[in-house]
Design a protein around this nucleic acid. Sequence first.
RNA 1: GCCUCGAUAGCUUAGUAGGUAGAGCGCGGGAUUCGUAAUCCCGAGGCCGCGGGUUCAAUUCCCGCUCGGGGCUCCA
Length: 612
Amino acid sequence: MRVLLIHSDYLKYQTKSKTRIAEQIEDDKKEGFFEDSLVVFTAVEQEDEENPQEIVENVITEVKDVLGKIGADNVVIYPYAHLSSSLSKPDVAKTVLQEMESRLQEEDIKVARVPFGWYKSFEVSCKGHPLSELSRTITAKPREEEKADKAEESKWYILDQGNLIDPDEFKFENEDLRKLVNYELGKGESSGEEPPHVKLMREKGLADYEPSADVGHLRWYPKGRLIRDLLADYVYLLVTKEGAMPVETPIMYDLADDAIRVHAEKFGERQYRMGHKNKELMLRYACCFGAFRVLSDSFLTWKNLPARVYELSTYSFRMEKKGEVVGLKRLRGFTMPDLHTVCRDLEQSLVEFDNQIDMCMQTGVDFQVNYEVIFRATQDFYDQYKEWMHASAAKIGKPVLLEILPERKHYWISKMDFAAIDYLGRPIENPTVQIDVESGERFGITYLEENEEEGYPIILHCSPTGSIERVICSLLEKTAIEMKEKPPMLPVWLTPTQVRILPIAERHMDYALDLARQIKDQNIRVDVDDRPETVGKKIRNAATEWVPYVVVIGDNEMEKRESQELTVNIRETKEKQVMDLETLVKTVQEETRDMPFRALPLPLQVSQRINF
RNA sequence: GCCUCGAUAGCUUAGUAGGUAGAGCGCGGGAUUCGUAAUCCCGAGGCCGCGGGUUCAAUUCCCGCUCGGGGCUCCA
């Protein structure tokens, strides 16, 4: 809250016309005249909404303090929006101003309040002594009692083949799970290094920080953009194969909508807000709002269910704390595949949940990334659906961490989170499935039951990969972990250059380009390093770009032009293999089978490229 | 957001006890036409992050800001 305190000889005002947010007033309030007043010009700000009571208390303390010093006869509270560029919602402001008035009355101070939301003319005469003009910023002190409600803590177990084991007693055979458990239970040891993916994302020309944007928003270079697009294609194919219907919805929502505001409030301070005239908008933090609005406006019957609606949120926005934002791991703007499944009842949602577990696990296989799993549920849900939970956990095929919450804190009653473990031993939370029991009713999503009664559905939230940025983060972190044992590389279907042709001298160039065109026609991303450099240097260069297949073309290959016999450097095995063109093409196609393809969006000739 | 550390060429960095700066990579030019992880020579490139203060003089010392790293807390 911002206040401007003026000790005045007199203040005179007259209402002129109403704004949309004007409060209802009696005629006698339409004008006013006060003498020897402390005029409190007041702007209630967005951040005050969190704890309006304390704001009122603090401003009253301040006003009383000033009043005591200057000895004015009375106080006039004057709503003055122009003191701040980030105003609260009008309703909150009105309440706060009214509270201020009644709190001062309680203290037997003569007080008047000028009407809110009117255009007014006014005249104020400032006394001009040293204390007659003061401005103050009023904030709510951080609430102390937050920690108190930790009384009810979660219980943690390792769930292994239907047995619940105390994490402290469990003998970990899996190092990643041990790291995850330590981290979740707050026992993580930290080494104070930068996660290696940050350097890699820049070095490989994928992405970089954008200092001209807000913190936590990235710029993506062509290679990074290519990988993002391939991942987007991948999830699209994955979910549509399972019957999901893609939609696209707005990225910002009006907080005047009650359902949206209540759902958003659960998100607390992490909302990314935008004020716009009298509208207060919030940037989406996931696709929930859009999906729910689509679903609540559709006519659903039990025959339609389960109904799956999918959207890739380019972008989602979360106002993460500044110190938390890092590389690809934690961003304020990110892209997340978001699948919402409307289920007839809990039983149906459990069947779908199981399908979605399979989907999440499949993404780990396709990305060649290991996930560890945290299964969470409320105590009630666990008691009732213990058998289902044990069976679903068993699908993972290894022990999982189990959290049992004493009671429901969020909209979900059970969720499963999949995490990759980064180079520093910390989890990167990726895929997730959640059972939402609140949003159906809150967003007015109904369906017609077989008996013609209307019901509220259970809704599953699922991101089968987690955010696209975090997928790339896990891939890069994995290469850093494995760097000692094998040459780092991305899965071939995701790597920008899949085959590089490397002519030795200029006389080999035409043949190299000819081969490249043939390979390109087979939907393989190929390029030609046509720079006038030594073979050694070009080999080294291809290695630093993690190119999985490198073909050197010299006199020997020219001689075998008929058979198109080539010597291929295979990165993964560090082998040199002689094979013909057809075999090379088949090898790459085999390795990228069933995965999406996009052409290389860069010049075929390396010499023509830009160094981003 | 808080605590803490940092910012020198496109990148990685050396350096100045206060007198405005060097190197490697990359880039441009030239020579070399080469068989598996850096060919040689030459050249350009710096408001030493931004703003203020101290000083005859600040990239260097002090303060503020911005951006970044690490920690705290939370998450996709």
